[in-house]
Nucleic acid binder design. Structure first.
Lengths: 335, 335
DNA sequence: ATGAAAGCGCTAACAA
DNA sequence: TTGTTAGCGCTTTCAT
């Protein structure tokens, strides 16, 4: 069913039909009505490719993220999709799997007008940004969220990583911890930086010396993490607390603690950035910094659509900060 | 950068360039080489809409699912995306939020050729299927997974819900349970049916009477579930086990048990279909039926691409069954 | 081996 | 208010 066939049915020229369908004022109401009725009757749908080709826009956005198996990115997608559906946009999803090469390949795919805008959260491996600059130079509206690249200008939606990390560290210190290990996932990521800084500053404020052995870097997909953690915790000089910058590492810490017969929280306290839904069923429940992931998704998408529709980003602020929440869970609850 | 501009740079006609780019044999090797070199140099990319318009295919598939905030659908998406990336397809994602009206709207969006194929898992609310039949009649290749519609012919990827449900119920019975409640999420869903049947058959085999009060239906998004569960468990005649057909209901059961000071597993045993990653950190760990979600994603996508590329489904079997795994977790582990 | 031209379905400038 | 026409960028048939 094309617009031509529809026009033939109606004995109208197809340009008239086209205009009527898009409710253009130079068409008489009666004609519009007829056209709309017939279109519905014949279940006419515009061909999106013809339309996109002509209009040079796709009504589609891309979401580029490291992983989807993650309690943070899920609600983000949910937030993005909810706004996209409201605005009549389609959402393409691409996973980098924390792999820079995949990220580069994907950004190349997005350069040819397939999408009207891109939202992305870079991979933990990303230590060069030429591909992102190239994409931006093509004039494609972009919004970074969570794992942002400060070197590239444009809107970014982030959480108050420094502050919440500071607070969390302070929380541990106030609970008597003196040797707090910080587990980071990347040397490249903006969020890792901020989180590490918050940790440092809290130590400094409370006059705790920083021991470089306590700052450890982990590969998010690496099973050797387990061994490294074991080494860290099996040391006579072991930390009395672990502050993990991502959930996976906190969970791993639980497991290693169990293997080593360390009691949580008596022997070691564990705390992390996490959006794990079932965290309050853990034994013991873990104090977490919970990011407002759904809101981050909605907010980023909202900004992207503003960018797409108004073009130019001068009217948007560079950083939108949404606060995470430090949720303290103290009591042991054996069911 | 269009093909015309590229052709001008090369002093060739644009049809020659087009052919060269797609490696058509009637073009000389030298010309091909030149064209490719220049294309790379000028970073030429085909316009996907022009190409789709002409070819009547989009190199894009749609994935329609109820929710993304869910430990089952995440790895499914991951599996789908991994194959799509290999085959050079793009993945559009649509969430129905368990809402039939949204599902209908989305299927309408997919009728106009925007995608070459659709994978879907229907909403818990879906009790009519006209919209799905319409989509199928349009000739768009479709693959159902997990929550399938048996009334519509075509490939379906499912797990052995009946069997695993049977096994799980038997596991409870073998552990001394006599009053096992089954919490279902839908009266419409194929998986609910199968799971309920498995539960029934196990009861029958072990000569346990079925008490209709023990079969309860829940709304997946309803907070009144909490109250209903409370009523169920606060009864003097309460069940000694709960078999939840979805994770959310199992978690809720944990919470209600705690509120009522019921001990798990002494007073009540809880078991469920779940892909929760951290289930072994729960207290106590929960026996689960774990679905091979990533494989379901890969398998469904693989079938869909076969359908798309070969057209017609006569060569594909209707049901592909991938086995779930009953993972028994007995010990209480207090860290 | 290369080029000219038609046409995919649509939008919009211009003509009637 | 309606119709004619050009053209978005590409693929492909047919001619050279």
């Amino acid at each position: 069913m094309t617009i031509k066939e529809l026009a033939k049915e109606l004995n109208l020229s197809f340009s008239t039909v086209s205009k009527a369908l898009r409710d253009i004022h130079e068409i008489s109401d009666k004609t519009k009505e007829n056209v709309l009725k017939k279109a519905k009757e014949l279940n006419y749908q515009v061909n999106p490719f013809a339309s996109s080709l002509r209009n040079q826009k796709s009504k589609t956005i891309a979401v580029v993220i490291p992983e989807v198996v993650n309690d943070f990115f899920d609600p983000v997608i949910n937030g993005i999709e909810s706004i996209a559906q409201e605005k009549g946009y389609h959402v393409l999803i691409y996973l980098t799997h924390e792999d820079l090469q995949k990220e580069i390949k994907i950004t190349r795919l997005l350069q040819n007008g397939r999408v009207d805008g891109v939202m992305l959260s870079i991979s933990a491996q990303t230590d060069e940004i030429k591909h992102l600059e190239t994409l931006k130079e093509k004039g494609i509206p972009m919004v970074f969220f969570d794992r942002v690249v400060s070197e590239i200008s444009g809107p970014k939606v982030i959480t108050n990583d420094f502050q919440s990390s500071f607070q969390a560290t302070e929380h541990l210190i106030e609970n008597g911890c003196k040797k707090i290990a910080f587990l980071s996932i990347s040397k490249n990521l903006s969020i890792s930086d901020k989180r590490t800084q918050g940790y440092f500053e809290a130590l400094k404020k409370h006059n705790l010396a920083f021991d470089s052995n306590l700052l450890q870097f982990y590969d998010i997909n690496n099973t050797t993490n387990f061994e490294n953690l074991k080494k860290l915790l099996n040391n006579s000089n072991r930390p009395d607390a672990i502050f993990a910058s991502v959930e996976t590492l906190a969970i791993l810490s639980y497991e290693v603690s169990k293997v080593l017969n360390l009691r949580i929280p008596e022997d070691i306290k564990i705390l992390c950035f996490s959006n794990l839904k079932t965290v309050n069923l853990l034994n013991p429940p873990m104090t977490t910094i919970t990011q407002p992931a759904f809101e981050i998704g909605r907010e980023s998408a909202d900004i992207l659509f503003k960018l797409i529709e108004k073009k130019g980003e001068h009217f948007l602020k560079e950083y939108t900060v949404i606060d995470s929440e430090l949720i303290k869970r103290e009591s042991t609850r054996a069911i």
